[in-house]
Design a protein around this nucleic acid. Structure first.
Length: 520
RNA sequence: GCCCGGUUCGUCUAGCGGUCCAGGACAUCGCCCUCUCACGGCGAAGAUCACGGGUUCGAAUCCCGUACCGGGUACCA
């Protein structure tokens, strides 16, 4: 039995949880679930004026929203200073670290010189005279603590994603691990905390590859076997530059606000840089499948462009496959934001045969196949709450160009009203919400219109479209009779009449302008 | 500059020496369904596998070089 795996996600709380970080968190989480290990979160708030409490909360909330919750309490690096100090002492005592008094100016000079000569700059203890250091020390001058890096040879590791990576030790040099005020630096704290927390595998962004050899040196100096490493490629924007705010939404909270479901984001992110072993697979994959198939060695080495379109598509699929009550609750929140009356107890749906819940459930059902995000619902359903304020001009021109067409619409309105009266008399009101009877009701409305259209030699589409225009103001909507049902008899007829009046007014106006008599 | 990576359809990717004149998904286009729009179904188009050399009977797959892109080069994380 091998040791239980322990992985961690270690964000620095300097802003929103970026999708790139979210993916790193996800991959760590998936790895932990897949291997039956432990997933931890460590907030790297080793101060910097940049870390904020607010960002910490945001990040934790985002993780929770995604379902990536840690298996043990969240660690805060700032609270671990005593541990860092102890390890620092150890390195100092063993001679793996030393106090460096070399002033900044001299450092800059050396760096400049190396650069001018096309050499890499790697500081070494020998570059600053021993006696001078001692003098400064005696005078109580400030100093940093440097790690004594091995001289000559190479440091190598086998990255699960990138394979064998090897660098010359002399390209690294003695690097700083603590500031003059004693506060430790990233490469050091990271190693110490990972050791202390028993991390067995470090999975993080590709930007940390160059840090890894330094960290391995510290592990060795401390006599600890380094963990495994897996680095993740970057996420790019459409212009192939590192994904940033100017590419649109990049923060997890922004996606949430956009009406993306966490499951969809997780699924999309999982497939960004990773693919299951099967050559052909269903990309919309439940979490359990993701966990079962996940492995870090199938992560791609090359950076990936974040494709908003594909995320939107996947989100639409998730909205459709998620159990209805949950979607309805989410959508109702958003509807209530625009029309607060909806959730008030005295709200009456326009079709009195339906309860508020039935009605809301019904109209949400009509939009569900036409959306990709939750935010689209209010727009998609607006005409159920407000009569159209305008009509699509092209459609008006096509379907209501003359008095004959207008009169036809007027007549159709009457046919509908009659059919509606008959249908409600015969229907069992208790079963109105039953889809089967709704279908029957639709048929009862449609039949008379079809019969009439045929007798007049009018294509059915030319009957349906003007009605659609009257009730929605648009030429695209869910199936017409479903719309009418949820809109109710009274409102339907009112809107048809409104369009008739509007069309007549428009006709005489344009006729007066052009001087032509209205064509019949 | 120097160090370290990367490069397969517009995008995400499969491919780990022959089964690939390269498979899937999104997007695009067409058809079907149809009262419109979607959903769904079917189909089409789309990649000289960055380029140039090797190795091999045989390379997208191995090696070298070039180009381009990225990361790093801190008393940031």
């Amino acid at each position: 039995m091998t040791k239980k795996t322990r992985v961690r996600f270690a964000p620095s709380p300097t802003g929103l949880l970026h999708v790139g970080s979210a993916r790193a968190a996800l991959f760590n989480w998936l790895y932990a679930r897949h291997t039956g290990g432990t997933f931890l979160v460590r907030i790297e708030d080793t101060d910097l004026e940049r870390s904020t409490e607010e960002a910490t909360q945001q990040i934790l909330e985002s993780l929770e929203w995604l379902g990536l919750t840690p298996d043990e309490p969240v660690e805060y690096q700032a609270r671990r200073a005593h541990i860092h100090r102890a390890y620092l002492e150890r390195l100092l005592e063993s001679g793996h670290a030393y106090r460096c008094y070399c002033p900044k100016e001299k450092l800059d000079e050396l760096r400049e010189k190396a650069r001018a000569e096309g050499r890499i700059f790697a500081y070494r203890r020998e570059m600053f005279p021993e006696e001078e250091a001692r003098k400064l020390e005696a005078a109580g001058a400030p100093c940093v603590i440097r790690f004594r890096a091995p001289v000559g040879g190479t440091t190598a590791f086998d990255d699960i994603v990138y394979g064998h990576i090897e660098v010359e030790n002399d390209t690294i040099g003695d690097f700083v691990i603590a500031r003059p005020d004693g506060t430790p630096l990233y490469n050091f704290t990271n190693v110490v905390d990972d050791i202390d927390m028993g991390i067995t595998l470090v999975c993080r962004g590709e930007d940390h590859v160059p840090n890894t050899p330094k960290q391995i040196m510290i592990y060795r100096a401390l006599g600890v076997e380094p963990p495994q490493f897996a680095h993740l490629p970057l996420i790019l924007g459409p212009d192939k530059q590192k994904l940033s705010k100017r590419h649109g939404a990049t923060g997890v909270t922004e996606f949430r606000a956009m009406g993306i479901l966490p499951e969809a984001l997780v699924n999309y992110l999982a497939l960004l840089g990773w693919a299951p072993p099967e050559a052909e697979f269903e990309e919309v994959m439940p979490l359990e499948e993701l966990i079962a198939r996940f492995s870090l060695d199938r992560v791609s080495k090359s950076p990936a462009v974040f494709d908003h379109e594909k995320l939107l598509w996947m989100n639409g699929v998730y909205i459709r496959k998620t159990p209805r009550p949950r979607i309805e609750a989410l959508v109702r929140e958003r509807l209530a934001q625009r029309w607060p009356a909806v959730e008030k107890p005295d709200f009456m749906p326009p079709n009195p045969a339906l309860s508020r819940d039935e009605w809301l459930s019904g109209i949400i059902g009509l939009a569900i196949e036409r959306c990709r995000t939750l935010t689209e619902f209010p727009d998609l359903l607006a005409y159920f709450f407000e009569a159209p304020k305008s009509y699509e001009e092209k459609a008006a021109k096509k379907f209501l160009a003359n008095e004959a067409q207008i009169a036809a619409l007027e007549h159709v309105g009457k046919l509908l009203d009659d059919a509606w009266a008959r249908a409600t008399e015969s229907a069992d009101p208790a079963k109105n919400q039953n889809p089967e009877t709704l279908e029957q009701w639709c048929q009862a409305m449609e039949d008379p219109l079809r019969v009439w259209a045929e007798s007049e030699g009018i294509k059915f589409g030319n009957v349906a479209q003007p009605i659609r225009l009257a009730v929605t103001g648009k030429t695209a909507s869910p199936p017409l009779f479903h719309v009418l049902w949820f809109l109710g008899r009274e409102e339907t007829i009112r809107r048809i009449n409104a369009l008739v009046t509007w069309a007549r007014a428009r006709l005489t106006e344009s006729g007066a302008r052009s001087g032509d008599p209205p064509t019949a």
